[in-house]
Design a protein around this nucleic acid. Structure first.
Lengths: 218, 218
DNA sequence: CCAATAATTGACCAATTGTTTTAGAATAGA
DNA sequence: TCTATTCTAAAACAATTGGTCAATTATTGG
């Protein structure tokens, strides 16, 4: 992958004499799909965290042998870094699509929070919670770089919230005196709180918490 | 300890013929203070979590040899359980004292949250965060019993919040239509959120989040 | 002093950890 | 076909993991 990317860069940037360079490269081709393998890793890290996931766990889930994993990703941590980055891209793309497409972004925003108290959603995702939040808590005292990566993810979510709130304000759904940046951060904190509270309250009990939390928007 | 407790129970409940039973018992006495040792363990679990703390880490911090640790606590998990219980008792005692003693419990409650954005507090505790919240996140998918223990701790905090809010309501500081139970849970969620948000924002940036979060109380 | 009990010590343990190595297999380009 | 390159497979690795054990030491009560 890196090799091909490297070639792509050269392909585009080099002078015309090199245009004929192939995008592929000599050598045995990969027998697995990197994106797919990272998705499996993602799932494990999401459910169990980094420390509680062993390399053997990863190998089994990704369908790889040690050689392939270490050749491609360098280390267990390397898998974690790439899986986390991939999750970030996927999650943010989906979130942006949900919040930017509807005609009423404020309503979609509220529904996004309310969905966290939906029992069906609860069964599927609540056990895992927020990938960023989990990683941030686990890595905070162990790996500053990973902590930063997780924090970056959440700040990107903040940005999406901010854009939705700005849009709502321009549409007159939000008081002109409201501060969309401050509200976005407040909502991130509500989000983060629910990542923990979900594990101690029933979906039923989460509803009033969410409604009280969203009160500041109306 | 268990032995002495057992003797204490017998001492109190048995018929007078057994009153002479000593509270101590034959055998070599413990050379370390259990409460103190658990405090050291607590500190480690708090900072690094359970998985990232090895038995060797524990032995070094607690000043014990393997034999003593396993004789007294049974397992690494046993240390975790007891350290967590001890933390719960200590933390809740301190919190109750802070909230129940002042003449203005609502004000103390707000100050408790504002303290989370105090840089000096940040340096000391923010890196570790909330023991209950951290444990809840880590144990949620690994150890249901420990998850329950951590959740219990947070629900006890909820109860302390509830009592402060009820008191404030009776004193007329809170609208009669307010629901102290719902507000207490909302505040627990604010608390839980800050346990994660603290790791991505500066203390400066936490302030408006906290103030917005406390807005529902006025 | 003796028997019973309990705590400490240090050696020992099997299993698992993340990682490396070495040999071979599969491809592209010359 | 030869060479360079990349990927895979399997074995081997040292280190660390959480935990056990037998022998010894310290205490209480009779």
């Amino acid at each position: 992958m890196d090799i091909i990317l490297d070639r792509m860069v050269k392909y585009i940037t080099f002078d015309p004499s090199n245009v004929k360079t192939s995008l592929t490269v000599a050598g045995r081709p990969k027998e697995f799909d990197e994106v797919d393998a990272l998705s499996r890793a993602q799932e494990l890290f999401w459910r169990q965290g980094y420390g509680a996931t062993s390399t053997e766990d990863l190998l089994a889930a990704m369908g790889l042998r040690k050689g392939s994993l270490y050749h491609t990703f360098g280390s267990k941590r390397g898998v974690f870094v790439q899986a986390t980055k991939q999750f970030g891209h996927e999650f943010l793309r989906a979130l942006r699509q949900a919040l930017q497409q509807g005609s009423d972004p404020l309503e979609v925003l509220c529904q996004t929070f309310r969905a966290l108290a939906d029992p069906s959603h609860a069964a599927a995702v609540a056990a895992k919670g927020c990938y960023f939040g989990n990683t941030l808590v686990e890595m905070a005292t162990l790996d500053p770089e990973m902590q930063h990566l997780a924090a970056q993810g959440l700040m990107a979510v903040e940005q999406v919230f901010y854009e939705a709130l700005s849009q709502a304000q321009q549409a007159g759904q939000l008081s002109q005196s409201a501060d969309p940046r401050a509200l976005a951060r407040y909502l991130i904190n509500l989000w983060n709180g629910l990542n923990i509270s979900r594990r101690m309250y029933t979906p039923q009990d989460l509803i009033p918490i969410i409604e009280t939390g969203l009160q500041v928007l109306v």
